[in-house]
């Protein structure tokens, strides 16, 4: 690498860093419920069952910036897998218009369906090597509950949002939303179907806002 290349790389890095800093950041913590979901599998009429227990689902929240944002030009693609007879992840936030694929990573059939008003579908029974991957486009905002017609305990959620600025907290409730535009918005935290917390925020360029919910 010669001197000119080094100089060019340094200039590009400096420009990128300056652009990132021009955007606002919100970080903080959402108070999560203490209870966690521990599914119990119905094995009553399975002649042969494997050992082991289903992994518990610790509570997490989805934090997002609500406001009027332009629609994405390119449709995003996300995945919810069925692995070890569970949805992974159990909660997936997506922007309106996102295509969600449902790969089956188990050695058994699954039959994913939803009767939620924003998206009703039934993918039928499909194998782990199914191609193309069964998928659905989520084009109406709202909460979609996923279930499996074969495994009664399986339950997953897709939270369809109108904003591109969202993330899932960690299991302690910590979050950091980056690359946010300056302006006045509402910061919301979806904790459960019964509870969405919100707080108005005023974002300024190159600022880092600390917010705890509630």
């Amino acid at each position: 690498m010669n001197f000119r290349h080094c100089l060019l790389s340094l200039l590009l890095f400096a420009t990128a860093t300056a652009t990132a800093r021009a955007q606002a950041v919100i970080e903080g913590r959402v108070k999560l419920p203490k209870t966690h979901s521990t599914p119990v599998m119905n094995k009553r009429y399975e002649i042969v069952t494997a050992g082991g227990v289903l992994a518990p689902n610790p509570p997490v929240a989805v934090v997002y910036l609500a406001g009027a944002f332009p629609k994405p030009t390119n449709a995003a693609v996300a995945q919810i897998a069925q692995k070890d007879l569970m949805f992974v992840p159990a909660l997936l936030p997506v922007q309106v218009g996102t295509k969600v694929e449902f790969p089956n990573l188990d050695n058994a059939y699954h039959n994913i369906f939803s009767y939620s008003p924003p998206k009703r579908f039934d993918l039928g029974r499909y194998r782990s090597d199914e191609k193309p991957l069964p998928a659905q486009v989520f084009d109406v905002p709202g909460l979609v509950t996923l279930r499996c017609d074969i495994h009664e305990h399986m339950r997953g959620l897709v939270l369809v949002l109108e904003t591109p600025h969202f993330m899932t907290t960690d299991t302690d409730g910590h979050f950091q939303l980056t690359n946010l535009p300056p302006g006045q918005f509402k910061l919301k935290a979806w904790v459960s179907s019964q509870s969405t917390l919100e707080i108005p925020v005023d974002l300024k360029t190159n600022s880092v806002l600390h917010v705890n919910l509630p």
Binding site: V40, M41, N42, K43, R44, T49, G51, G52, V53
Partner: peptide, 14 residues
């Protein structure tokens, strides 16, 4: 009414 109980990884009762 059904009762399903998982008692550790190797014992199941219903």
């Amino acid at each position: 009414l059904f009762l399903d109980a998982q008692l550790g990884p190797h014992v199941y009762a219903f």
